[in-house]
């Protein structure tokens, strides 16, 4: 397999794993945190502000790290 094909395949696997993790994260947040977040935004905007930014960072950093680890595992297996 040439370099371009391998790079493209790696990117597709990476994006697929990351996409699955991001979707699971979204479903979990929508299922468990909607009412709490709604209440928090009305009652305590300052805490809501920090929770909002943490949710975004957790999704971007946490899931990205998890996805990278899973990608490395699949690369080793291949």
């Amino acid at each position: 397999m040439n370099v371009t094909k391998r790079t493209l395949l790696n990117l597709i696997i990476e994006v697929a794993i990351y996409g699955a993790l991001v979707s699971v994260y979204l479903v979990l947040v929508l299922h468990f945190l909607v009412d709490w977040l709604k209440g928090l935004s009305a009652k305590d905007p300052a805490v809501y502000a920090w929770v909002a930014i943490l949710l975004m960072i957790a999704q971007a950093v946490g899931l990205e790290r998890l996805a990278s680890s899973l990608v490395q595992v699949t690369r080793r297996r291949r």
Binding site: V22, V34, P45, A46, A49, A52, M56
Partner: peptide, 21 residues
């Protein structure tokens, strides 16, 4: 903006699902 009640984090997270990819 969130402190002023101008952020709907649920909308942002749904958008982020596509944006991250």
């Amino acid at each position: 903006h969130a402190m002023n009640g101008n952020v709907d984090i649920l909308i942002a997270l749904v958008m982020q699902t596509g944006a991250a990819l």
